[in-house]
Design a protein around this nucleic acid. Structure first.
Lengths: 223, 223
DNA sequence: GCAAATATAATAGTATTACTATCATCTTTG
DNA sequence: CAAAGATGATAGTAATACTATTATATTTGC
């Protein structure tokens, strides 16, 4: 039972019409998450999505310029959501060490059921971002996308944790590299664990990823 | 002046006809490297490649089942080449520490001009693998691809360095995670440095990536 | 309560992509 | 020098990633 619901705001350059403002828009978002997770981003098409939600393909194009931009929207949403969880997780903690530990936990653990909006399955969205997230920037127009702010939240998260690192060790030279390495690394390891397990050490049942990266960060930044 | 040339063997499941055995095959490989680097993998097509090499599209399909499989071939080739460099780099070194340091250097530094086969521009190939490499496994058929051995060399490289790590600290629990994290991380950081610099700490002219990851590895594995 | 604005649906169409098929010709090689 | 194999020429297909046009709902502002 929850008496509040947070609203995630997404950069308006990622969409043509705000999908959060209409029934159809929310349906596009929620069903596309299911479908991308099921088919993978390559086999996912607006035509198939249209069929699933029983709306014509061209209606989807009124919300998103392309399926690539839909992916950009979804990952932006995801990172905003993670940012919210990071802020929330830091409250009532005193030391920067505790805050950093908690933040690494949020970034490296898979999501638990929580108060995300009802039309977003954040468990599936997490899987999508792990697998397809890099496709938002591994494209020709990265620089333009970066200028338009598609990655601003991601960058802010990296900055936030980098600041913790610098607070703990002001002389540490590579905080951004360290943080972006572990964020991407955690997603990657979780994906490998499922599909190419010999690239990881994730054993049966037990989840070492958070332990590994927490350890890594504190060992690397100590003077 | 070189009196020898090494020949990289690629898993024969990645191609229909061995592109290394004919003039046309080598042309397909060498020109596709230029073209994928120039256009990005999404905009690259066999039709455009056919036009460039003045051969019909269908001739290219006689070598590679799809453009995805061509990418798999190219990345396989790349990692085999890196493996060769790793073996070469380890000769005449006594301590495992030295070997590991050298290996990290090979894996994290951009390639220098060396004795790669004339039809392969390994500088461009390195850029392609940094940017597009993950697309070989971020697809629906990863598991089948893994079973067919598309990633066997990559896995062998991870194993090789993991063994160094375990030799230095036999109690270290997560060698594979550590090594695959730094290999992917190095590529990623180099890509970020060029396109989304605020995610890194790579400054003007100086290249910190190797320093960062070398430090990271030795700090993390120390008892 | 109704006109105007806006969103959606229905239908149709286009250029391009990712292939496949067929057959003729050219080049090896045993 | 014949047979096998590789390449070229030509053609074709289903699907993708869109766009355009017009009709029909639905919302909203006065």
């Amino acid at each position: 039972m929850k008496n509040f619901q947070i609203h995630i705001v997404v950069n308006s350059d990622t969409y043509l019409r705000d999908p959060n403002m209409s029934e159809l828009g929310r349906k596009i978002v929620s069903e596309s998450i299911e479908m991308i997770d099921e088919l993978g981003f390559e086999l996912f098409t607006f035509r198939k999505l249209g069929k699933k939600i029983e709306s014509p393909e061209c209606s989807i194009y009124r919300y998103f310029e392309s399926k690539h931009m839909l992916l950009v929207y979804l990952t932006y949403w995801y990172w905003s959501w993670v940012e919210y969880k990071l802020v929330f997780a830091a409250t009532n903690l005193n030391s920067t060490e505790e805050k950093l530990t908690k933040a690494i936990k949020v970034l490296t653990e898979p999501p638990k059921k929580d108060n995300s909006p009802p039309h977003i399955n954040e468990f599936l969205l997490h899987r999508i971002v792990m697998k397809e997230g890099a496709k938002t920037y591994h494209v020709k127009g990265v620089k333009e996308g970066n200028q338009k702010g598609y990655f601003e939240v991601y960058k802010r998260i990296v900055q936030r944790l980098s600041d913790f690192v610098l607070d703990i060790n002001p002389k540490f030279e590579f905080p951004h590299m360290l943080i972006s390495t572990i964020i991407e690394g955690a997603h990657q390891q979780r994906y490998f664990a499922e599909h190419i397990p010999s690239l990881t050490d994730v054993g049966e049942g037990k989840d070492n990823i958070t332990t590994f990266y927490t350890n890594l960060v504190f060992k690397v930044i100590e003077e």
